[in-house]
Amino acid sequence: MEVDNKVKTEEVESVKTQKKSYSQNNKIATITNTDLETLQKRQKAKEITVKTVTYVFLIFFAFITIFPFYWMIISSLKTDTEYRLVIPTFFPHEFCWGNYAEALQVEGFWRALINTLGVAVVSTLLSIVITILAAYAFARLKFRGRDTLFAVLLMTMMIPGELFTITNYATVSTLGWKNSYQVLIVPFLVSVFYIYLLRQNFKQIPDELYYAAKVDGASDFKYLLKVMIPLAMPSIISITILKMMGAWNSYIWCQLVNDDKNFWLISVWLRNSSFVSAADRAASSTGNTNYPIQMAACVIVSTPLFLVFLFFRKYIIRGVSRSGTKG
């Protein structure tokens, strides 16, 4: 039994039980004691190897994951001369914060930023109202054809958006909405996925609450406002954040319908601007791309997303992983 004190890890527990049963049988107890110790040692060594390999694997991929961010940030702080060294430096010799000032002065930045924030806020607010109303109708109200209609809506999620885009482009052109703000907002107000997400959440709220409210004489609208929305708040926050991030990242549609720079969103501005230093621009009309300034612009566009991620991680992961639940 002298081995017992050494035994600590869970894996060895099973071995221990084996040993007990062996030692009851005196004849083989002496033989197994030595066998056990080598076995335990081998097991421990194997365990350490597995742990080491796991950590090396994870840290290697964590490094690959983080490297583009690292490269973006340090490149944004280099001078153009240092950036163009034959062998790139992995840490800037001197910090050139002026790149950020230059990036902010690139034509159209502030306009694109205000456009993006405005479009994000307005479309999120309207979209939340529409989603809540629709989710409430599907979760709580009873009317003929409700379940069929919901199934039809879910089926539209399978259709690639490009199929709609073709006709929507014609529609917005006919309406004269090209180069406007509403063209970035109105076609994307309804998201079946968010309706689905919120409906599932509303469904979890017990019916008894609804009947109690009805007995107390509350209208459907008041019940929705005072009971359902507060209880479903986490889901609503998730939807808000995902929608905001969507507006911040949207690119293709804006590129297609708005060729006027005054209506660009931040991603379109980033891809279509030429990043030339002020000195180069003064010297000639077509300067070389100044990559540190370009990288500074990338940092500026990426930072708000990181801040949102740091503060609202729980809600983002909640919204994303919800999309994976069956049913």
């Binding site: 964590a62 994951t65 961010f69 891809r271 990338c298 566009v301 990426s302 997303l305 990181f306 991620f309």
Partner: peptide, 20 residues
């Protein structure tokens, strides 16, 4: 760290890959 790329702007980081 592994979740970080989820919240990135596709255009911005794509330009970083191009630069790399």
């Amino acid at each position: 760290i592994f979740f970080l790329p989820y919240v990135t702007n596709t255009i911005a980081i794509g330009m970083v890959f191009a630069v790399m």
